[in-house]
């Protein structure tokens, strides 16, 4: 896409749980995100897509506290997120499924899941939550005693998602869950992400795999070189000729 489309301001409503306004982010002197605004409403599954280096993971890193934005605001309900350390953000109820999964490789699957319930506010309901994750991912129950590093990439992604669910989040941030997975496994992971809404979760999904994201999400934002170029219902974006040409190769 060559033409920068002016993006409409998000409609703000009472149900908005996650919001980003006029966000500017830089690594040292190099600015990579330019005035991005987006929001996610309660129960929504929203995609944030774009090519390599478009700044989508950078925005997610601000939301989970790994990076401090230079300007603008990032909010979860009434809580400011910019500059807050990651462990505090998890405490608030925003869980992050990080890029590359970041599992504890030498720990068993079950120990990885238990780490997800490290927060005191969730410890009491830990057995129920563990059961819930095992019901959701029966394969993890079979592998509960295996070291996480011994699992396949797809299974590891399930552990990462399950671990995040253990902290009883309201919002789930997912950073490139399909990265490094075989195409068939990507489909499986996307199916799982689509079914997360059954659990009443609000999801912001960052992905390079545009086609898969548009199929599974309600709405999506398209980033290019650090600026938003499109936003709208995912079904519309799937039919958008410019999106199809630039990202879907048709």
């Amino acid at each position: 896409m060559t033409e920068r489309t002016k993006v409409a301001q998000p409609v703000s409503g009472d149900a908005e749980v996650l919001s980003v306004r006029d966000l500017d982010v830089a690594y040292g002197e190099v600015q990579v995100v330019f005035g991005v605004s987006l929001h996610v409403a309660k129960g929504e599954l929203v995609g944030l897509v774009g090519g390599n280096g478009s700044g989508k993971s950078t925005i997610l890193r601000v939301l989970s506290g790994m990076l401090r934005a230079r300007g603008g605001a990032a909010q979860y309900r009434d809580h400011n997120l910019n500059g807050v350390p990651p462990y505090r953000i998890t405490e608030l109820g925003v869980a992050h499924v990080p890029m590359g999964r970041q599992l504890f490789g030498q720990m068993t699957v079950e120990e990885n899941l238990l780490m997800g319930a490290y927060l005191p506010r969730t410890r009491e309901r830990r057995p129920q939550n563990l059961q819930r994750v095992y019901d959701f991912f029966p394969r993890l129950k079979e592998k509960r005693a295996s070291p996480a590093a011994a699992l396949s990439g797809g299974e590891q992604q399930m552990v990462a998602i399950g671990r995040a669910l253990m902290s009883e989040p309201e919002v789930l941030l997912m950073d490139e869950p399909s990265l490094g997975l075989a195409p068939l496994v990507v489909k499986e992971v996307m199916r799982v992400i689509g079914s997360l809404r059954q659990l009443g979760l609000t999801v912001l999904l960052v992905e390079q795999n545009v086609r898969q994201v548009l199929k599974v999400t309600d709405r999506a934002y398209v980033l290019e070189l650090g600026s938003l170029v499109r936003e709208g219902p995912s079904a519309d974006l799937l039919d958008d000729p410019e999106i199809r040409r630039a990202y879907l190769g048709v």
């Binding site: 350390p85 720990m107 490290y118």
Partner: peptide, 20 residues
């Protein structure tokens, strides 16, 4: 367990709510 998690993956631990 949090200590072992921090040793194996500090970022992963921090994201679980561990003040690493």
């Amino acid at each position: 367990r949090a200590v072992r998690a921090t040793a194996q993956n500090p970022l992963g631990a921090e994201l679980q709510g561990v003040n690493t």
